[in-house]
Design a binder for these strands. Sequence first.
DNA 1: CGATTAGTTGACTAATCTCAAGACTTGTGG
DNA 2: CCACAAGTCTTGAGATTAGTCAACTAATCG
Lengths: 226, 226
Amino acid sequence: MQTVRASSSSQPAPALLLRDISLPRRSPDAVALGFTRTVAKDEEIFAEGERPAFIYKVVSGAVRTFKLLSDGRRQIDAFHLPGDIFGIETGEEHRFTAEALGDATIVLYRRSSFGALALDCGELSQQIVSAMMRSLEQAQNHMLLLGRKNALEKVATFLLVLAKRISKDDRIDLPMSRLDMADHLGLTIETISRSLTQLERKGIIDLPTHRLIVLRDKEALERLDT
Amino acid sequence: MQTVRASSSSQPAPALLLRDISLPRRSPDAVALGFTRTVAKDEEIFAEGERPAFIYKVVSGAVRTFKLLSDGRRQIDAFHLPGDIFGIETGEEHRFTAEALGDATIVLYRRSSFGALALDCGELSQQIVSAMMRSLEQAQNHMLLLGRKNALEKVATFLLVLAKRISKDDRIDLPMSRLDMADHLGLTIETISRSLTQLERKGIIDLPTHRLIVLRDKEALERLDT
DNA sequence: CGATTAGTTGACTAATCTCAAGACTTGTGG
DNA sequence: CCACAAGTCTTGAGATTAGTCAACTAATCG
């Protein structure tokens, strides 16, 4: 596991600075006004868990979006450069924190302006959009796992995620091999095996057969899930 | 680096098996017919690089989607369980390979049925959808990097990606600190530093200042990018 | 300038991988 | 229904990569 270093953090800067109100160019359905805002180095633009009120676009400078584990380990999912849109959410909270890398200028579009986003799409498109969004959320959580969790944490998280999807009374009938798990979690089959054994020794899971896992202590797993 | 093991691979199974033609329920804009297909264990459903002709939905069984590095290292981005939609692409090729984990049943929807996907959305939604898609593609590439590349490969890939976005004649003016790079690539600042030094020693890059990187040998970087 | 922060380098440690052997499962055919 | 074969999983020992800690150097900001 890795040392957690303080992120370079100046103090949070003043309030929102209105500069300019620009209409999105050539947009016929432009209900969205754009506010321009300047942000200082390391200033927070929005925080994980907040209700998303805007969608953002970088005008100048650069922005990082990241997730944190409870002990401060951080995974930056992306750097956003001029022209990039970020902060899109379909749910009720931001799943990242966004901060400026250096001084930056961004444009904010009221989220309410385009309502539930997918609503002005046909129903089929809507299904597809929501499938994309689910993939994206999964991918983003998975980056945190791959970049910042150790082997035991990876396996614990994986079991919990799988349990939510397919467990019957805390029994998981694994649909995949150890090799598949390994290639999903960025580990080797041996490390998967050792991690499972370790969880079993601690009484957290049972392994009646190789393909069946019984979760005996979900709380303990959740503690590992950080 | 990690040993590459052969994926359990039976031989590719026969052709497409039409079973059933079902209309998507309650869908008013349902131009899409659903074909049901059964696939055998480890059978390929589509391959990375292929032109995407369908969108898929798992009916029974489970499916893995993955990317490979040139030497066979594999990153499974997701397991798809009954009800899950997978294989959505906005571009002209599949960016993953999909295979059945065990015997499985899937439904195929002709992609042409909903045309360019975003087309029946308003223009603004369309921008948002395409921003989502970009994030998703980035996230998926990044999972491969986080899960299966070593430190030097990570840094090399990062520099190339960054160069494509912001380099002027192969000079990158880094907008982020070493800590930011580290937290993006799942490494520590020391390892970032050592990797950059190593690239410099090999004559692949120059580091005139900490925030400026000159790419001297892109080919070599691309070779590391696998 | 001088102080502070950011980045580099070295020596050492720890986590995970690699390689190898053995055990368990599963499927097949006698 | 048992025995064997093939594949899958587990375990151990040693190697390797990246992390940790610490000292030093370079850059940046008042």
